[in-house]
Each structure stands twice: as C-alpha cells, then as structure tokens.
Design a protein around this nucleic acid. Structure first.
Lengths: 141, 141
DNA sequence: TGAACGTTACGAATAGCTTCGTAGCAAATA
DNA sequence: TATTTGCTACGAAGCTATTCGTAACGTTCA
C-alpha cells in the first residue's frame, strides 16, 4: 500500500542512489563529485537527474536553504528488493532459487561469504514452518 | 573473448528470450502466440523485435525456409549471469553477498529450496581452496 | 557597488526502446 | 489462373533516458 507509486530507478539513477545510500543526504555538488571519480559527467547533468528523481518521488529534497539537499525516498533494502523482484520476473521466470544459484555459482565467493550465507539460511530455517503460518513475524533488524 | 559484443537484452527482449529458452528454436508466430498469452502484442511488434535482436546478435536466425526460425545466441545461464553482474554493479556495489541475502531474506523460500541452496554451498565449498587456484574446472552439467 | 562565482531552472538535442501500419512477395487454395 | 492467406521488410511515431547549454538569480568579496 505504500510503495506502489515509486517508479523503478534507471541505471543512472541507481548510480546516484548508491552515492546517497553510502554517504547520506547530499548536495548536487557532492553527488557530482562522487560520480566524477568514476566517469566524466557534467554538473548540470547530475542536477537534472536529481531534479527528475525528485519529481518521480525517488528522492526527497530539502530546499530550505539555497543549496538543496537530497536523500533517498526509500531505504536501500526496499529498492534493492524491488530490483531483484524485477530481475526475477524478467529473466528467471520467478525462480529465486535459480537466481541465487546463478549468483553464487558463476562467481568467486570467499569462504567467509559462504559461511555468512549459511548463517542466513539457518536463520530462515528457524522461521520456516513445515506448514505455512498465518502470523509470521515481520521486520527484524 | 567471446561475449564482448553481445549487447544487454532489454526487458522486452528478455521476455522473448524466456520463450526461446523454454521452448527452443521458434518462429515469430509461435513466440507471438506465447507472448499473447500474457499480454496484448501485435504480430509485427514481435517480428520487429526479433529482427532487431537478430541485428544485435542476441538471437540467431535460420532463414533457409520462408518462415524464419529464431534461437538464442547465448545460453540461458550466460545471459542470466550477465544480468546478475549488471545488477550487482548497478545496485549492490558489487557485493554478491548482499544480493543473495536480499534475494533470500525478503522472500518466502521453501524448505526444499533452502536445502538445495545448502547443497550448492557445500559443492562450492569443496571447490574453494584456501588460496585461489589457477585451474578451476569449468563447464559441469 | 560591481564583478565573479555557485546554484537552480529550463529547454533542447540525441539516442534507444516499443509499437504498429503498410507494402511487397510467396505459397496455398479455390 | 485469380484470390486469399501468411510471412518478412521497412518506416515512422511516441515515449523515455541521458546529456548539456543557457539563463536567471542570489552570495561573496574585492
């Protein structure tokens, strides 16, 4: 009921979101400086992008002072979850299993990462009843 | 050296690729019928899309008979791997761990699937030396 | 004050994606 | 053979994403 109207970020928009996720609320100048570390991009390009993202509701803007400050409208996890859902539908026929297999299989993964995933699996296991529950707990840190 | 020139499929193109992956080499007619099961789409739209995909090298075409037959240029796994790489870069800062956590965490996953993933992890473990190997085996069914 | 600078707003050009109409041709059929 | 059917090719329109130039305006500072 809350996340229906937020449009899917494009690739350029994601690039900006990553800066905001990583550094918190930022000015156009700052975002542009960050992007410029990776590739050539004009200041007004970044500005325009942020303005569009604002119009779309992807970011929230504090324009109380002359230099506006932008922050993501959604938390990192929400957006990432959305994107995975999209990819799942678009390329994996909805099978999360196949996606995870693909993500782990064709990639060098460290032992440590593997262990972390195993931990995650165990946690999920604890909460996965043999029969579907009607009142599964939600929202844990 | 082999997969550099193949451009990334768009969303519509992926929809078609899924049909080809699932049913094997197909005519425009067949692909269009499949797509039509899910949504409204004109025949020439599907035709044009396949023609463009052919130009781009995303699909291969057998035009020896009047009715052309299309098949994917890349195997399902390759394309999916590519797409995951892309998403990994675009939204997860390159961390496969975060991606998998997100894919598994925010989703109802069956016990069976969890077990399959655990198996996968064990297999990877067997092949993951403490120090990186120079001659990892490739291509297993 | 006035010049230089930083910031936002806006318009426009370009490119790619998606869709479909029309034309032309070949094959099947009456 | 004449008609109908089915297929490919092609062009174009509409939309979105991306990029940047220019203008307008406030702030800073010499």
């Amino acid at each position: 009921m809350t996340k229906k109207n937020i449009p899917r970020p494009t690739e350029s928009e994601l690039e900006i979101l990553q800066v905001l996720w990583q550094h918190g609320p930022s000015t156009v100048r700052f975002v542009n400086d960050e992007l410029s570390k990776r590739r050539d991009v004009g200041y007004t390009t970044t500005l325009k992008l942020l303005q569009l993202m604002h119009e779309k509701g992807i970011v929230v803007r504090d324009d109380s002072s002359r230099t506006h400050v932008y922050r993501p409208a959604l938390r990192e996890q929400e957006t990432q979850g959305q994107l995975i859902d999209r990819l799942l539908e678009a390329a994996f026929g909805g099978s999360a299993l196949k996606l995870v297999q693909q993500a782990l299989g064709n990639r060098r993964t460290t032992r440590e990462e593997l262990d972390q995933i195993r931990n995650l699996l165990d946690n999920i296991d604890d909460q996965t009843p043999a029969k579907p529950a009607t009142d599964a707990p939600d929202e844990l840190a």
